[in-house]
Computed example of a mutant assay.
Amino acid sequence: MIADKMQQLSSAIFSELNEQKKALMKAGRSMIDFSIGTPDSPPSDRVMKLLSEATGDPLNYRYAISDTQELIDAVCHWYHQRYQVTLETDEVISLLGSQSGFTELALCLINPGDIVLVPSPSYPIFTIGPHLAGALLHKMPLLKENDYLIDFEAIPKDVAIAAKLMIVSYPNNPTAATANPEFYKALVAFAKRYNIMVLHDNAYSELLFDGQRGESFLSIPGAKEVGIEFNSLSKTYSIPGCRTAFAVGNKEMVSALKTLKSHVDYGMFLPFQKVAVSLLTGPQDEVKFIHDLYETRGQFLIQGLKEIGWNIPLPKGSMFVWAPIPRHYTSSMNFTQDLMHQAGVVVVPGISFGEEGEGYVRIALVQNEEAMAKAIKQIQASGILNT
């Protein structure tokens, strides 16, 4: 009865962990959850005021149908101010969150049997979207010795020749790695050489640490000829529930998305569009606050864990920590389960992000320092780090 492609989709690891957490809490356990990357910091008062005013206008409850010119202009303005990238109006489209955008773009570009190059480890939707479109996936290992950057030379030539789409994402989820302009130049050159379309997910471009500054893939000459970039306001402004994101770049790819979306949705809720316009064209105080919050949290957590014997490298960007599991464990899933049941701390096993994620867990920086200090004490008390 159910489509074959659905048989290959198991319950999302985040849902499974949440169900286990709820069962433990029902049994009286106190749990500290670092699994889902949902910002715990509320939006600023300015954002909530803007949204309240916009939702107070009855005209804003009509179908949006398409993006307002005001929103398109705001995205173009922000990309020019932030990245010095010039966009035309037909190179921009909103997304109801970048998560759904991965599936929609795959449906636009991929025929059953086409090869899509995907990083491993990677956020699950990077593979699920192409899978639902019938793609054949070729994994590109992100290895520690390469600073978790894609090694283009390691991709077999016959695979590169046959590939239709490549998915790239820096700052990276889950590894917290970042990429520099030289990497993006190599990416554009590789895509042009083999006539591969590129989807670059740039959701964490404002969350780079240690003085680094996030860049756009589209700032590289020729990038718009081969690719498209997703960007999101969810994490940067702590508004994930508003599902406010956009795709920019290659006109043909944007046009295909517009055609598909005209059949399957009625556009972004108008109050969300109005809030997005204000955020993209106004002061960026919220961005600095969120950036500093995650950088400080990462430093606090890693220092505290180091003091109890768990040595983890500082993240270079994103809102995640990519933590090697203790040496006496061989399974990230087993460590995750023990951490949950013995210490009351929830993280995500690296294996759930792909085979190359084995040996790690992902920790989302979504708890305040008080909660992190408590988690550190519970981990130490559990003895789970001891050999």
Score class of each variant (00 low, 15 high):
Gln7Arg: 09
Ser11Phe: 11
Phe14Asp: 15
Leu17Tyr: 13
Leu17Val: 07
Asn18Glu: 14
Leu24Asn: 02
Met31Leu: 14
Ser35Lys: 06
Ser35Ala: 15
Ile36Asp: 12
Asp45Asn: 09
Pro58Ile: 05
Tyr61Gln: 10
Leu71Asn: 03
Asp73Trp: 01
Val75Asn: 00
Val75Gln: 05
Tyr79Lys: 04
His80Val: 03
Leu87Asn: 09
Leu95His: 06
Leu95Tyr: 03
Leu95Glu: 12
Gln99Met: 13
Ser100Ile: 11
Ala106His: 06
Ile110Phe: 10
Leu117Lys: 04
Ser120Trp: 06
Ser122Cys: 15
Tyr123Ser: 14
Ile125Glu: 13
Ala133Pro: 11
Gly134Pro: 02
Leu137Asp: 03
Leu137Ser: 04
Met140Trp: 01
Leu142Arg: 04
Asn146Tyr: 10
Asp147Phe: 14
Asp151Phe: 05
Phe152Gln: 03
Phe152Leu: 11
Glu153Pro: 02
Lys157Tyr: 06
Lys157Gly: 01
Ala160Phe: 07
Ala162Trp: 02
Lys164Pro: 05
Val168Gly: 01
Tyr170Trp: 01
Ala176Phe: 12
Ala177Ser: 09
Thr178Ile: 12
Pro181Glu: 06
Leu187Gly: 03
Phe190His: 07
Arg193Glu: 15
Arg193Gln: 15
Asn202Ile: 06
Glu206Tyr: 15
Asp210Met: 13
Asp210Arg: 14
Arg213Leu: 10
Glu215Met: 14
Glu215Lys: 13
Pro221Lys: 07
Glu225Tyr: 13
Glu225Arg: 06
Val226Tyr: 02
Gly227Leu: 07
Ile228Glu: 05
Glu229Ala: 12
Glu229Lys: 03
Asn231Gln: 11
Leu233Arg: 05
Ile239Pro: 04
Gly241Phe: 10
Phe246Met: 09
Ala247Asp: 08
Ala247Leu: 09
Val248Ala: 10
Gly249Thr: 15
Lys251Thr: 10
Glu252Ser: 13
Met253Ala: 11
Tyr266Asp: 11
Gly267Phe: 07
Met268Phe: 01
Phe269Glu: 11
Ala276Val: 01
Ala276Phe: 08
Val277Glu: 11
Ser278Tyr: 01
Thr281Tyr: 01
Gly282Asp: 01
Pro283Lys: 07
Asp285Glu: 12
Asp285Arg: 03
Ile290His: 02
Tyr294His: 13
Glu295Asn: 10
Glu295Gly: 11
Thr296Asn: 14
Gly298Gln: 02
Gln299Arg: 15
Phe300Arg: 03
Gln303Val: 11
Gly304His: 05
Lys306Pro: 13
Glu307Cys: 01
Lys316Arg: 14
Phe320Asp: 05
Trp322Phe: 13
Pro324Arg: 06
Pro326Ser: 00
Tyr329Gln: 01
Tyr329Arg: 02
Thr330His: 14
Ser331Asn: 08
Ser332Thr: 02
Phe335Ser: 04
Thr336His: 04
Gln337Thr: 12
Leu339Ser: 04
Met340Asn: 09
Ala343Cys: 09
Val347Phe: 12
Pro349Phe: 00
Gly350Gln: 04
Gly350Trp: 01
Gly354Leu: 06
Gly354Pro: 00
Glu356Cys: 08
Glu358Val: 09
Ile363Leu: 09
Ala364Met: 08
Leu365Ile: 12
Ala371Lys: 13
Met372Cys: 10
Met372His: 08
Ala375Trp: 07
Gly383Ile: 06
Asn386His: 12
